[in-house]
Design a protein around this nucleic acid. Structure first.
Lengths: 341, 341
DNA sequence: CTGAAAGCGCTTACAG
DNA sequence: CTGAAAGCGCTTACAG
């Protein structure tokens, strides 16, 4: 191993007795080098501890190897899981994730994208916020690809990955109805992201079709604390619900704790509860929450596959819609014949 | 805004009527440019949508702006929180985090560091695994700085951040003893990281000093499932403990659920439980776990401050040791006078 | 304070 | 298959 500061292709070339171009080619999959030179180059590289400088490579080849992961609240269970899956999948595909945290503001989304651009990331995958059209176009024109997770927007050259949220909302209602709930509750959010909205609308729609009244509680945020507050208020109402759908697991767990620890209710006997996301905590003994699963690994795979396919200019936007499957646990009574709807 | 592909400093220079050097200087804090030229440059840059290309800047100036975050299991609550705090702090300081996931193997740690090196990251902060000496030296010689979180190792030019784990372990024992527990249990881990080991040794040490017997359960992993298993076995023993210290919150929550849901025990009446980390879930109504707090924000601040200070060659290693403060909740009976020890 | 010039480490036509 | 040469977009002495 060399004892000197950064070792460059030039030194490797000298040691191997070849040109700089040859070492470059040896490190480029599919380049035309004879096996013999490549072997010599690799041996020299190994001996010197050489690594290609990705900064230089990215500067010249538009292949920085970098992809930006843009997200808010990554400490949250669902986001953290998605982030983990995505970064591992990307890494396996030879890409390197750059992490850019945003808050909910448009301004921070804008900065995030600019930052991605300044590092010439090959793509940006966003799971929070939405770029405005002009900015998205700018990125696209600069050769950056966009993948939007759970945002509702199709655009040329971008991949959109979403779940069938509306259908899940409908299923939630029907499941509650089928298992004997009479007064339905919905704990939703004013965050207004397309995925949340889809779940809400699906649930309302099914309620309308069934002619059922709905007690709603609109939360600002989607976390545990908010759920706790929602549950506390909802179950104190004279027409307290006996079946509630919460648009996230965190909300559901807060609602559940309010019911049990603050109101002395039993779940599902006094109130059935359904969540959404299937975060790890949903499976804990203290909750055993019936919920819809976000297929995190499939999302990661879809992202990486799309990125691996060569980008063609003017490529139409693509959207993949994944099902959100119900995972049965203990917060809803089981119907005699567990239906699928 | 320009409608053409990547806009470079040259175009900005032309539009502003200055040299390329002037635009470079305008974007370099502290460089010598007249306010007037800087103004012209900024206006032109704004008009064209110019962003300095960090790849090119990093290539020439050893200031890539990148710092590598190297970690395993980032989907885990404590890790996710730390990652979030770190990435935000870094971002506020103008740095951009690169995320490199590892598994526990030495091989993957090695690859992670090589990857960091190939992007010329200014620093690598590791919160999983340890680089072997030769590799760490290589990084250091290449001008990369290292910050090691909760790993026990001092080395020239690196920052080590750790908690007073041993003291926390001692406190846990003393607290349990003071609140009337007679049969102490310890749910530890064979992971062998320095922080875990410190907690374990502190607890054992205090037990030895008090002449108390100890029921131990050594887990491989540090997650909820393992805790559930540990609790199930531990409380089924004839000499089941009535006070147990778990080296992580996740373990503690599993143990707690085993006690309550599988053995029908009450916490803290039948068994007191103390955790470590103070993850968000520890505050949930179903747990209200008494635990030690990991000062995540302080860790992030310490990291960023150290990185902000200019690196001098041959700088001695620095270590900051933070206290892990007890947060009182409901899984330990309160002594009459809540002591500090 | 300013500009012309050299150079960071790489890749990629181009010619052989 | 191979090497000499040009060039990616920037920064930084150097001279003025």
């Amino acid at each position: 191993m060399s004892d000197h500061v950064p070792v460059t292709a030039k030194q490797v070339a000298e040691l191997a007795g070849v040109s700089r171009a040859a070492v470059s080619r040896s490190f480029t999959p599919g380049a035309s080098v004879s096996p013999e030179t490549r072997r010599k180059v690799m041996a020299a590289a190994e001996a010197l501890g050489y690594q290609v400088n990705h900064l230089a490579r990215g500067l010249i080849s538009a292949q920085s190897g970098l992809v930006a992961l843009i997200a808010a609240e990554i400490e949250t269970p669902y986001r953290a899981s998605l982030l983990s899956a995505l970064s591992q999948a990307l890494q396996s595909a030879g890409k390197t994730p750059i992490l850019i945290a945003t808050d909910r503001s448009d301004e921070s989304v804008k900065e995030a994208l600019h930052k991605a651009r300044s590092y010439r990331t090959e793509a940006a995958v966003m799971f929070s916020g939405m770029p405005d059209t002009a900015l998205a176009d700018l990125c696209l024109r600069n050769g950056m690809r966009l993948v939007l997770i759970n945002r509702d927007e199709t655009r040329e050259g971008t991949l959109q990955i979403r779940l069938d949220d509306r259908q899940a909302g409908r299923s939630a209602f029907n499941l509650l109805a089928k298992t004997g709930c009479r007064r339905m509750g919905l704990v939703s959010s004013s965050a207004g992201t397309p995925s949340l909205t889809g779940r809400i609308e699906g649930f309302r729609e099914a309620a309308r079709e069934a002619g059922a009244a709905l007690g709603e509680w609109v939360a600002g945020e989607t976390g545990y604390e908010t759920g706790l507050q929602a549950g506390t208020e909802l179950f104190a109402r004279p027409d307290a619900p006996d079946g509630v759908f919460c648009v996230t697991d965190l909300l559901a767990m807060g609602v559940m704790d309010a019911a049990r620890h603050r109101l002395g209710l039993q779940v599902p006997r006094d109130a059935a509860i359904i969540g959404f996301d299937n975060i790890p905590q949903a499976g804990w003994e203290s909750y055993r929450l019936t919920t819809f699963d976000q297929p995190i690994d499939e999302i990661a795979v879809a992202t990486v596959d799309w990125l691996a396919a060569p980008a063609e200019p003017g490529m139409p936007g693509e959207t993949v819609c994944l099902p959100a499957r119900l995972v049965w646990r203990d917060t809803v009574r089981r119907p005699l014949e567990p239906g699928r709807d």
